[in-house]
Design a protein around this nucleic acid. Structure first.
Length: 275
DNA sequence: GCGATCCTGGCC
DNA sequence: GGCCAGGATCGC
């Protein structure tokens, strides 16, 4: 579900928790823990102070005062919700409960269990197999176009759509914002990277940055499930130009949108405008 | 590179 | 019942 703007919106909505204490961690028997265990996560994080809430690509990091982090990926259907009082009857598909002061807590809910809960204690996340595979974040201003370009050129066989979704090239785009980025850059999602000029890749890079930035400003796209950590919806859905608009005009009315399938996923785009 | 796969739920 | 869904990995 959540792409960079949604995860960033969750992060921002939970920043007020920095400084509070992680009293207790509980996991369901089906909690999607990877490269770690419930016992390890409890041992390392229980009764420690939540110092910082960070984001890397689509991953959230709940980092304690010793620099040890619970690394959360929300997959397609994951939510991380704050409760002032943890309900005695937990929401369906609750897989982790992080108890905080008094009766408050965070609940990780994930119906499809495509998300992951993992572990890192190294500053750059090099000890976490998920984080270590990521390219730079699109919203990292240290990430320069020339770096992006050389990363793109290592994947000449990919379509531009696949390039956008490749988290090892650059982190943060998912299906919604990839489609939107390609529209903004006026590039055909089917085109091969090898047939795309440096100048066109530059357009793509800055389009991605801009689209993701707007997504953050609008609080993310709440299509169905997505809510931030306080249960609020984002309004980016109202600004999407092509996503989920098959057989309609682009939002700005500039052309007709079609849907195709690429790598088992839908791509919406405007063939008249995207070349 | 591409398609299948992990899983549940909503919608037609 | 079938198809689709905001993701990522693993085979061929």
């Amino acid at each position: 579900m959540p792409e960079l703007p949604e995860v960033e919106s969750i992060r921002r909505s939970l920043l007020f928790l920095e400084g509070s204490t992680l009293q207790k961690l509980q996991f369901s028997s089906l909690a999607p823990i990877e490269h770690s265990s419930a016992a390890q996560l409890k041992k390392k994080l229980q009764r420690t102070r939540l110092q910082q809430i960070l984001r890397r690509g689509k991953y959230l990091l709940l980092k304690n005062h010793e620099g040890k982090s619970l690394v959360i990926h929300l997959g397609m259907s994951g939510q991380l919700l704050y409760f002032e009082k943890i309900p005695s009857s937990l929401p369906k598909h609750s897989h982790a409960i992080l108890s905080l002061e008094k009766e408050a807590g965070l609940i990780y809910i994930d119906a499809r269990r495509f998300g992951t809960l993992s572990w890192s204690e190294e500053a750059q996340g090099r000890d976490n197999p998920f984080l270590s595979r990521l390219g730079p974040d699109y919203d990292d201003l240290e990430f320069k176009f020339l770096d992006y370009l050389s990363r793109c050129r290592q994947h000449s066989g990919l379509s531009l759509k696949s390039l956008c979704l490749h988290q090892g090239v650059a982190a943060g785009l998912g299906n919604i914002y990839a489609c939107e980025t390609l529209y903004w850059a006026r590039l055909d999602p089917r085109r091969a990277v090898a047939k795309t000029s440096d100048a066109e890749l530059e357009k793509l890079f800055y389009a991605a940055r801009q689209v993701l930035q707007i997504g953050i400003e609008k609080g993310g796209s709440s299509l169905k499930d997505y809510l931030d950590g306080r249960g609020n919806r984002g309004v980016m859905k109202n600004f999407l130009q092509v996503y989920d608009r098959e057989a309609q005009n682009t939002l700005d009315g500039a052309g007709k949108v079609i849907r195709i399938s690429q790598n088992n996923r839908s791509t919406w785009f405007c063939p008249e405008l995207q070349k």
